[in-house]
Design a protein around this nucleic acid. Structure first.
Length: 127
DNA sequence: AGTATGACGTTTT
DNA sequence: AAAAACGCCATAC
């Protein structure tokens, strides 16, 4: 059994759980995943997580977009596929290739939030 | 212990 | 409004 108080799961592991929690047909942002995983500033680490696990693990990697609702992955290196996958889930893009986050941004309900955070506290220094 | 990585986010031009 | 500059972070090595 893990030590009391010590995080048993790394940020990377928690981030993967959060990504898996994004339902089909919805999206979340890099920063949003970072915040859910316990560190609001670790958006870049979320990028690294996706880099190492997108194709291999069973992560819905395509559901992570940037804060403006745009696909960050460059076309030709997966960006096109990401858009195709999202459209197949029902996510719509406007003429500028943007997703309406008011409509498609996923927000976890209280129960999901609790589940995602059971591994450790969320030291959000946003104050 | 220092450097590199990255599909970001925020602030400043 | 758009772009650059700047800040930030967890992991790999």
């Amino acid at each position: 059994m893990p030590e009391k108080g010590m995080p048993t799961r790394s940020f990377t592991q928690r981030a993967m759980d959060c990504i898996r929690a994004v339902p089909r047909g919805r999206v979340c942002t890099y920063g949003g995943i970072a915040r859910l995983a316990g560190n609001a500033r670790a958006a870049r680490q979320v990028v690294r997580v996706l880099h190492s696990c997108s194709a291999s693990r069973d992560l819905p990697w395509q559901r992570i977009v940037d804060r403006a609702g745009r696909i960050s992955l460059p076309p030709g290196r997966g960006g096109d596929e990401q858009r195709r996958l999202l459209e197949r889930e029902g996510v719509r893009f406007d003429a500028d290739g943007r997703i309406d986050l008011e409509r498609f941004l996923w927000r976890p309900d209280a129960a999901t939030l609790r589940d995602l955070r059971e591994g450790g506290p969320a030291p959000d220094r946003g104050a």
